[in-house]
Write a protein that binds this DNA or RNA. Structure first.
Length: 921
RNA sequence: GCGGGUGUGGUGAAAUUGGUAGACACGCUAGACUUAGGAUCUAGUGCUUCACGGCAUGGGGGUUCGAGUCCCUCCACCCGCACCA
């Protein structure tokens, strides 16, 4: 009997489906393990071989943990809302719901081909009303809560109202606007609208005005990366900034907890750094500078208050509020011209050109509160209005950017760090002793930092201040294909929709045009929008990350109508133990889902405040392109080895009609009509293609569909080969040719059970010590590798194991049965088949993982490498019990050693028991 | 510029604690079986040398009896962030 993988795989996939083999219960005495993939966006393009890499890795882990006695949750679903589907609808008129269903269906069939152990009864789709009902519900939780800084947690908005009624907002600074201050009496005197406006400044989900990129010609709002140099990427139409009222999530209140939370979870250093970088916490101080002959003050933010005596000028962002009032008549024209220049530049340009130095003097001077010196006030685009206070104190001797600016505009530089400043470039040191710094002269900078901070606060001219780069997250999209907000506006004031009315269903539309004034398409559905006189629905929809911020919770309890997830169920499953996905979600999805988890935790809806205990980022699978060389102005193609003899043009050829590097010339002729009459100049009778490793992309004809690979080699081979390619986290190119090694391995495994002539050859005889040693070595290695996700080395070890058993002619049931259990996470179909061939009636999915026993692998001898001066010259097989003295004696008697000694006496002999021998001359 | 990562045969890679570098595969070479081979099996395969040997883990230096592994320094490539005060 041959290894007929097609029949085997079909048979067992059907069987597992019929028997609900992958159904997971929430009610179990076993320890739990939650293994999760980042769910896919079901695009129309389908999967290529790069996509399933992470899915295979988690599938192996899930199956492995199941064998090890865990109740394993391993679900899959779809991130089904999103822009491309809507774009497709605009172009084709096909409703996004229909496209989405179609795409999901084809995704599903591709996934099923590979034999994953997902519990599909838990499938979720973020676009399904029964799912987004709860996305809306959680949004209302965010809307109805505020961040209590004293308690460092979110609380229901009622606790804030209660506090306002007692003490106004004393001690509860307003995160939306620090200037807002009121007493209990003030609060009680406000009408409902005023009160709700105040509350809005505290809510975690809140409304504010923000700019969007509005493109009149396309009639749509564009994402930042769809705008290039102020023009739309598609069509090159002008794009203008338009202020619109939009929803935000107050993620900045959680900045500190998002930072400290990183220390409790296992993400890669790179990933943690990306998040830290994004959050961008900095410690510093705000310092108020008085302006000469002007009543206004400038508040600057600095991380280096210790350098305050080195301030040679102040720079305001060109958009700063004070610009108009401090510009002197003499400088008015120059300032106006500069501001016009800055406005003409797109954000992208302002960010791109780091080298050119621009700026303008306002004519006014500020007064350094520490030494009374007059300091010129400049404007420059390198200071951003949105960060800190939009004003900086420039210290040229310590900051390179300030230094360059001072040099460029001939501003004298004060040296406050003595020898540490060489006049050629700034020195941002924190370890110098201060000079030219009044009473602080001679003080180490770190000490001065404290002293000056204290002085700032004593003098009442400022305070210590922590700043974050991170901004609050925009949560509105002017689009159709997303979750509607459960919000209505009564006379312009936002109110929540009653929970009982959830979900607020997305109305069916057939025209996807943007609404008036940059609003989303929903604004056109007037019957849906206008509920009553003066009562309108919110017409924005939520962004893509809304549904994905909490989906891992819904899998636990996917059919619950009464709650997003029953607390008892989330207490059982808890955090995701292993989360695998691409690195591209580093600061989007992974930060937002951490935020949502923290809010739900604070409000008592779940019992943990980090969603993912361990995250692994799988590497990208690159494409390996194939090239053919056409002789110029002909239809003749020359093989790669001979191309230098001709004048040729390089052309991409579909990798699917190339075997390794050898082109199937007949398939090539059929590939495209232009090539039907192609002729070939061959080498050794073959047409050899050139190769190039690059991104996998349809355009480069180097995509490989997993369906085709599975068809040709089977799912088990495909799964193992993807893992065999290299470490999970590393990027590597796909090379279809290499798969044959893995396929041969499975055939070789099969031959341990079946002989071509003799048929089934498994014996019931007891295993020999050698056979047991091979088995137990494999158990040790493969169990360890599987736990560490080192699947490439595990696959190698399966190969070694089968090679060794073949050499030993081992066909013992006792051994082979255990090998199958080890193998089943990797190659589930063939393992199940052979498991039944051995006479087992139950599924191998429920087998017990073999237990490693040290006694079978104990060695009594070791082939020691013998080195002379560190270079290995020979080996000696010695009993492991031998001690240094005996080993040295034996070594000195060794022929090769004697030869290398050349009669000399060794200075020293190093013997590490069980490792090596080194003789030093 | 800052942060993170990676550099090992023709190719994908291995080496878990500083101890025989290149396991396991692909490819290639030769051979066996065969009507046939894109099946299977056997042997070989880092570079160099007739050989003894010498040289090899991006380059250079160091620590050590011994370094792919530790330290210093430089280079290349990849990823992320970027006038962030």
């Amino acid at each position: 009997m041959e290894y007929n993988f097609r029949a085997i795989e079909q048979k067992w996939q059907q069987h597992w489906k019929d028997t609900d083999a992958y159904k997971v219960s929430n009610d179990s005495n076993k320890p739990k393990c939650y293994v999760l993939d980042m769910f896919p966006y079901p695009s129309g393009a389908g999967l290529h071989v790069g996509h399933p890499l992470g899915y295979i890795a988690t599938d192996i882990y899930a199956r492995f943990k199941r064998l090890k006695g865990f109740n394993v949750l391993h679900p899959m679903g779809y991130d089904a809302f999103g822009l491309p589907t809507e774009q497709y609808a605009i172009e084709t008129g096909q409703h996004p719901a229909i496209t989405t269903d179609k795409n999901i269906e084809s995704f599903r069939s591709q996934l099923d081909n590979i034999g994953f152990c997902y519990d599909w009864s838990r499938e979720i789709r973020t676009s399904d009303p029964s799912y987004y009902k709860w996305t809306q519900w959680i949004f209302l939780q965010l809307f109805n809560s505020w961040y209590n800084r004293a308690a460092e947690k979110a609380e229901p908005i009622e606790s804030l109202i209660h506090a306002f009624e007692q003490n106004g907002n004393a001690g509860i600074p307003c995160p939306g606007d620090r200037a807002i201050q009121f007493s209990a009496a003030d609060w009680k005197a406000m009408d409902e609208v005023a009160q709700r406006n105040i509350l809005m400044e505290y809510r975690i989900a809140y409304l504010a005005f923000a700019e969007v990129n509005w493109c009149e010609a396309l009639g749509t709002v564009l994402a930042n990366d769809e705008v290039i140099n102020g023009l739309s990427e598609r069509g090159g139409y002008p794009v203008v900034k338009k202020k619109m009222r939009q929803w935000f999530l107050r993620i900045t209140e959680y900045a500190d907890r998002l930072l400290t939370g990183l220390e409790t979870i296992q993400f890669s250093d790179a990933m943690k750094d990306m998040q830290r970088n994004w959050i961008g916490k900095s410690q510093g101080a705000e310092i108020t500078f008085k302006i000469d002959q002007n009543d206004a003050n400038i508040v600057v933010y600095t991380t280096r208050p210790d350098t305050v005596f080195g301030v040679d000028f102040i720079v305001l962002a060109p958009e700063h509020d004070l610009v108009a009032s401090i510009t002197t008549p003499a400088q008015a024209d120059a300032v106006a011209a500069y501001i016009a220049y800055v406005q003409s530049r797109s954000e992208r340009e302002r960010m791109a050109e780091v080298k050119s130095i621009t700026g303008v003097f306002t004519g006014s001077y500020a007064i350094n509160p520490f030494n009374g010196q007059q300091i010129p006030i400049w404007l420059s685009e390198y200071v951003l209005a949105g960060y800190g206070t939009g004003a900086i104190m420039a210290v040229p001797c310590g900051d390179q950017r300030d230094f360059n600016f001072a040099k460029h505009f001939n501003i004298p530089i004060t040296n406050i760090i003595g020898d540490a400043f060489n006049g050629e470039e700034a020195n941002p040191t924190k370890d110098a002793n201060l000079t030219n710094s009044g009473e602080y002269t001679g003080m180490p900078m770190k000490k001065a930092m404290e002293a000056i901070n204290n002085s700032i606060e004593e003098k009442g001219i400022g305070k210590r201040q922590v700043n974050f780069k991170m901004r609050d997250a925009g949560f509105s999209r002017q689009r159709y294909w997303g979750e509607p907000f459960p919000i209505v506006f009564k006379n312009g004031v936002a109110y929540q929709v009653d929970e009982k009315e959830l979900p607020v269903e997305l109305p069916y539309i057939q025209d996807y045009k943007q609404g008036p004034e940059g609003e989303g398409p929903l604004a056109n559905v007037t019957a849906w929008v206008n509920l009553a006189e003066g009562v309108k629905r919110e017409t924005n929809t939520m962004p893509g990350y809304a549904g994905s911020s909490w989906y891992f919770l819904r899998y636990m309890d996917p059919h619950n109508d009464a709650a997003f997830c029953d607390r008892k169920v989330s207490d059982y499953w808890g955090q995701v133990d292993l989360y695998v996905g691409g690195t591209e979600h580093a600061v989007g999805h992974l930060l937002y889902s951490r935020l949502w988890t923290k809010v739900l935790y604070d409000l008592g809806h779940i019992g943990f405040d980090e969603p993912f205990k361990k995250l692994v980022n799988q590497g990208m699978i690159g494409g390996s392109s194939r090239l053919v060389y056409r002789v110029k102005e002909s239809n003749t193609f020359v093989s790669a080895g001979l191309k230098d003899q001709y004048d040729t043009t390089e052309l991409y050829v579909d990798v699917n009609i190339v075997d390794g590097v050898e082109l199937d010339t007949e398939a090539f002729k059929k590939w495209r009509s232009d090539y039907a009459t192609a002729e070939f100049i061959l080498e050794d009778g073959k047409y050899i293609c050139g190769t190039l490793t690059e991104k996998m992309s349809k355009r480069l004809f180097n995509t490989v569909n997993p369906d085709h690979v599975v068809e040709k080699y089977g799912a088990d081979t495909f799964r193992m080969y993807e893992m065999f390619l290299g470490p999970l986290e590393q990027s590597k190119p796909w090379e279809t040719k290499g798969i044959e090694g893995v396929h041969r391995f499975l055939k070789k495994l099969w031959r341990l059970f079946y002989d071509e002539q003799k048929g089934f050859i498994v014996e019931d005889k007891p295993a020999t010590p050698e056979e047991l040693k091979v088995l137990h070595r494999s158990i040790r290695k493969i169990e360890d590798d599987s736990e560490r996700l080192s699947y490439n080395t595990a696959v190698s070890n399966f190969m070694m194991c089968v090679n060794d058993l073949t050499d030993l002619k081992c066909h013992k049931k006792e051994i082979l049965e255990k090998v199958l259990v080890l193998l089943t996470p990797y190659a589930p179909h063939v393992s199940e088949e052979l498991w039944h061939q051995l006479g087992n009636t139950g599924s191998i999915l429920n087998a017990a993982y073999p237990v490693f026993e040290e006694k079978y692998v104990v060695e009594t001898t070791k082939e020691y490498p013998v080195s002379i001066n560190g270079k290995t010259r020979t080996t000696m097989v010695l009993d492991l019990s031998l001690e240094a003295a005996e080993v040295e004696k034996l070594a000195m008697e060794n022929e090769v050693v004697i030869k290398w000694l050349e009669g000399k006496t060794p200075k020293k002999i190093i013997f590490v028991k069980g490792k090596m021998i080194n003789i030093v001359l």
